[in-house]
Design a protein around this nucleic acid. Structure first.
Length: 430
RNA sequence: GGAGAGGUGCCAGAGUGGCCGAAUGGGGCGCCCUGCUAAGGCGUUGUCCGUGUUAAAGCGGACCGUGGGUUCAAAUCCCACCCUCUCCGCCA
């Protein structure tokens, strides 16, 4: 959520900033929120004044009864009753307006960072790093889609995954499964120097899914378990961000760096029939997420740190990659500033998004109510959150199969992964 | 899933309708005492919203698991839910 006070005090600045997202209907929502806020404040001021009077009367009633003045007490009680009725009406009204305001605010996206490039869609995202490790040309034996290679090697069994779970589920077997797990361990180990490893729950409450921004607007994208009022996490960002929800952290413990491996569940609503082959899009996949809770002034450096860490993993695998910055028109709802890392897959002839690193300013933390207290200073402030996929398994898995395919159809295991694959140097036909 | 107990401030813990934003103890912070340390003395100590202000002070409201209800008045009474603990059942 953006800060209502920003909306109140500097509405034009907010309008101008949100306008950069190139979604005209958002401005209407902002004006709607401002109207609701103005009305809410009027009602609240009046409600509090009536409450004050009721409180006064109640105290007097107590004093009168103690003094034995029953008649005087009765008279005041009558007056207070009337005020109470008015207070009820005002309270109901303020609750209503407050709920409506929150509903609108939850759907207003974050303010883009000043440095986020202007644009109207993903075609405007500039390349800011690379391409690196990209050869001038690829030999024919690398121009084979990973699903074909995987089938030849017997390491991907999507037909049976579909039998078990339906369309858009995948299943790796043998060294294919080992490779998927190795990528996770590699990603965790490479960040263990500074990040606490967490094994969070994969099912979360609606409140948790609201904090990170998936609800209420993107309910259709997530799997829900209605009977128990739980949701399957689309990323470990969701439980990790909410670890300190409702808590007040101290500045000396900031930043907090957390990482987690987790399965990720996405309904991919609207994607039926797209990228159905191979590993490019699935309802369930594995990912290692790195995340930081920070003081506002720590955030810019952390954004770069997270990006560097994600980049280091990819370059360590010796895959061709580039980094793009997300322009204002393509920025996700909660995002303040974002970078994507893309890996080139010669078999598919496509740049695959394998990591997204983002700074959310205080947008998520305000929803999650994560605050920071500085020293013994009075009051608190909202924390900043940042996170990034350290490594999303399926697409990296696919890119490895395409970039490391040899002439004989086998796949060389990137050196950094061999320790996690019982020393296997290549994946060959059985 | 069944039975019972309980959820109060940073922590422990009192409080069963008004004098309770909340005793008492501990902790933290400040000052005093002290050669230093320990012990001791005094004071202070939450969050949110609104109002106010250059900033603050101040003022008003809310918060005793959450949400409803009763009442002139609720931490205190009633209802629902959530969570924790103990026992039983089930179980990787």
């Amino acid at each position: 959520m953006i800060d209502v006070r920003l909306l109140r005090n500097t509405p034009d600045a907010v309008r101008a900033a949100i306008a950069r997202r190139a979604k005209p209907d958002l401005l209407e929502q902002i004006d709607h929120a401002i109207r609701l806020d103005t009305r809410l404040r009027d009602i609240v001021v009046e409600r509090d004044e009536v409450r004050r009077q009721v409180n006064d009367f109640s105290k007097q009633v107590g004093a009168l009864r103690k003094a034995g003045d029953t008649a005087g007490a009765e008279s005041l009680m009558g007056q207070s009753r009337d005020l109470g009725a008015r207070e009820n009406g005002l309270a109901a009204e303020s609750d209503e307006v407050e709920a409506a305001l929150r509903e609108v605010l939850l759907r207003i996206p974050n303010i883009p960072h000043n440095d986020a490039p202007n644009g109207t869609g993903d075609h405007d995202n500039p390349v800011v790093v690379g391409p690196n490790n990209l050869p001038a040309s690829f030999p024919d034996h690398q121009r084979v889609p990973h699903w074909e290679t995987a089938q030849q090697l017997g390491i991907l069994d999507n037909e049976r995954a579909v039998k078990i779970s339906g369309a858009m589920f995948t299943m790796q077997r043998g060294l294919g499964a080992t490779l998927a797990r190795a990528l996770c361990q590699y990603a965790l180990d490479m960040n263990a120097d500074a990040f606490e490893e967490v094994r969070p729950p994969s099912l979360v409450t609606s409140a948790t899914l609201t904090a990170t921004g998936q609800l209420p607007k993107f309910a259709d994208d997530a799997y829900s378990i209605e009977r128990d009022d739980l949701w399957c996490i689309p990323t470990a960002e969701v439980p990790l961000t909410s670890i300190y929800a409702g808590e007040i952290l101290h500045d000396h413990e900031m930043p907090k760096r957390l990482m987690a491996y987790s399965p990720c569940y996405r309904r991919e609503a609207g994607s039926a029939g797209r990228d159905t082959r191979g590993m490019l899009r699935a309802h369930e996949f594995d990912k290692v997420e790195i995340l930081a809770l920070a003081l506002p002034e720590q955030a810019p450096d952390l954004l770069l740190e997270l990006r560097n860490r994600a980049e280091r993993l990819i370059s360590g695998l010796e895959l061709p990659y580039r980094i793009i910055e997300i322009c204002t028109g393509d920025l996700g709802q909660s995002h303040h500033r974002s970078f994507d890392i893309e890996v080139y897959a010669p078999g598919c002839d496509a740049w695959l998004e394998v990591s997204s690193v983002s700074w959310f300013s205080d947008y998520q933390a305000r929803r999650a109510d994560i605050r920071v207290k500085r020293g013994t200073q009075k009051g608190t402030e909202i924390a900043h959150t940042l996170n990034g996929s350290a490594l999303a398994v399926p697409r990296v898995w696919a890119a490895i199969l395409e970039n490391f395919r040899e002439e004989d159809g086998s796949v060389t295991v990137p050196a950094v992964l061999r320790p996690y694959m019982r020393g296997a140097e290549r994946i060959a036909r059985p």
